[in-house]
Amino acid sequence: MNGIHDLGGMHGLGPINPPASEPVFREPWEGRAFAMFAGTFVFCGYTVDEFRHEIEKMDPAHYLEAPYYAHWLEAFKACLIKYGHITSDELDARIKLIASGGQ
């Protein structure tokens, strides 16, 4: 699929600005999201190619703007729902609950 992820040679994306150093995970959620790959891969039933394809289907603007591990979250969400481990309704409800400070 020739999508936004196929970035080689693209112009206009700005400077790289590598920091002198940075932690492996910049925020705690990044570490949890990273670790959930191994955690979900074991039971969910998706393949690595399928996981990557879900990332490649992301909205292009969101793909470019979102922090890296947010790409993984989109793929988790899609795969977990597709394989019937969670429903989008229960996920939406849980997000609302957490956002309102309920959990």
């Binding site: 959620w29 591990y69 979250l73 969400k77 977990l80 996920l91 849980r94």
Partner: peptide, 17 residues
């Protein structure tokens, strides 16, 4: 401060699973 969207989504998925 309030959590970012990806932080909330991470917690939502982790807590459900």
């Amino acid at each position: 401060p309030p959590e970012s969207d990806p932080a909330i989504l991470t917690r939502a998925i982790e807590s459900l699973l």
